[in-house]
Design a protein around this nucleic acid. Sequence first.
DNA 1: GAAAATTAGGAAACCGGTTGCCTTGAGAAC
DNA 2: GTTCTCAAGGCAACCGGTTTCCTAATTTTC
Lengths: 356, 356
Amino acid sequence: MPPRKTKENAGSLGRPATISDVARLAGVSVGTASKALNGRGSLREETRRRVRSAADELGFQPNTAALTLNSGRTYTVGMITTDTIGRFSIPLMTGAEDSLGAGRMSVFLCDARDDPIREQYYLSTLLSRRVDGIIVTGRRTQARAPIGVDLPVPVVYAFISSTDPRDCSVVPDEAGGARKAVDHLLALGRRRIAHVTGPEHHHSAAVRASAAVQRLAAAGLDLVGAPLFGEWSEAWGRQATGILLGAAEEFDAVFCGSDQIARGVADALRAAGRRVPDDVALVGFDNWDVMALACQPPLTSIDMELEGLGRTAADLLLAAINGEPAPGRHVSPCRLVLRESTAVSVRPGSTRVEQV
Amino acid sequence: MPPRKTKENAGSLGRPATISDVARLAGVSVGTASKALNGRGSLREETRRRVRSAADELGFQPNTAALTLNSGRTYTVGMITTDTIGRFSIPLMTGAEDSLGAGRMSVFLCDARDDPIREQYYLSTLLSRRVDGIIVTGRRTQARAPIGVDLPVPVVYAFISSTDPRDCSVVPDEAGGARKAVDHLLALGRRRIAHVTGPEHHHSAAVRASAAVQRLAAAGLDLVGAPLFGEWSEAWGRQATGILLGAAEEFDAVFCGSDQIARGVADALRAAGRRVPDDVALVGFDNWDVMALACQPPLTSIDMELEGLGRTAADLLLAAINGEPAPGRHVSPCRLVLRESTAVSVRPGSTRVEQV
DNA sequence: GAAAATTAGGAAACCGGTTGCCTTGAGAAC
DNA sequence: GTTCTCAAGGCAACCGGTTTCCTAATTTTC
């Protein structure tokens, strides 16, 4: 892409052109120039053309601050990540930005880094900038206290949710995802399924584990042993595999709370001479490509569709801004992504996606 | 953190309070209210107090658009990622936001997604919003065409750099990082060093490889074989290891162009019965904790200090905004992070950082 | 040809702040 | 008692647009 000589200084003023400059060049009044450029008022077509070409020549772009001042709208939203910008926030942000950009809105990025003071500082900054709305995200799906009450602008919680049920939250259906994982393993004929996941006090770990247990119970089955709660790391996956191998009970599948854990499990199983998926089928969670694809074999995983979630959140926010709020928890489904770690007849390298 | 009843509606107007509301409540004129709140003019202390408490009561926060309109400054900068928000952008953004936030500036996030049209759209959006400055980042360090010429606001390129040497760019010293890696391996007594890295046409791969070769040459040594160019994946690391093992030449160290590659190499070496670091020492690049820590053994790696780079970029931008531009390429050093993949006597789990 | 209708475009208020200048009033100086 | 001085605070212009209202000129109508 060639560096484009921007029009900003095409007219060679030392500053951005204002509508007065345009009006002067076109030989009309400021009000007329405004009407000409916005298709308002009743003007001769020739006048409009003259104004437009003057605007082009000067590279005129209306000062957003002035527009804001008399419309009251900023066409700007704030996005606050309560913890840290990270692996989960990125697709959320990308998706949100996608929808918002289509609505010609810009996004203020605020990284609160788990600091309530910082969060409130950002909140007041955003409010003083008169953003049209706010999206709150976080790394954990657990519900959190509302960022403020009776705020003058709509707020949508994405991924994370608000403890106040009247707030609008968009969250992934983690329980549904876990059920899909279990159903898939059951459909493969596996009956002796173990579960290795993150810390017990972590909301996602708890939700996914209990959904898995319930689904098995509904099929008249028990989990092999209790869910193994630990940390969200490969090391824990390896360690937990040692525990499973050392126990009396046999197992033919492991559903893992994250792809990292699953990868640790895969490595440890291979080291122990168990074949995946032949001896043990493996399902991860997150569908984090870096992990899922590099794993040997590539991992079947649950995708929370975070980008879509971000888009949904943005759409709900835009709706709320336009006076049509949709309060409540909006649950969006997860998707099962099939790869070789549960595949009996899938060729290496191919990726099939379950039809939902 | 308890949901705070924000002051925005404390005074129970249906809209954010304006300075007129404050003035009315305090029984003074608008101008006086402004002076009272900003410590200007000559007013009785009692009057100032009265105005301040009126402002508090109403939860007054000045409308940023109005401030912008008569100061000409927006206290806002744009951050354009030319490709995609990803692993490399995050620490950059975090660092930049850190410095900018300290300067009370807000950040507009723009994800151009490798689309020149989108990029120019964002650029013109930012300019019409009259941002005080722009930071351009990207996933690759390769120089790119300037985003625009003669822009009315300062621009700083971070990580990525501009082909125009008069532009201000902040880039990591990748060659220096590669030299540190080689020096470290030499200091360990390794003499038969191989290099596995990403695509030959990829700027980072080329720079790191040639710096490594040069450093070895300076020590009177050759690389074992030619640099193995491939892709930035674990799979390539494994594959390349196969090539190395199949070749006639022995090797006692591998310097890898990324942590992902290094991890693939580690896995393949282990599978082939070679011990790391005893038989083969291993150095990665990027110091991506997810990879470097989960690797067996944990990886020594080169850290580009992206967060610091982001801070530097932001600081340079702030300086430029304040009329002290610092044109040119600013190279910031990389850091060697020691872990077990090159450690002879480091205990498992510990991380030592080289003193620079 | 004069009155009415229509059209083109200008003047000014307004959005919400800041700031320079001016007015008012009180106390000091004589 | 009169003038001078200075502190305190009001008035209004300004930033850059939009919009309402009004005027002037042209065209239509009879």
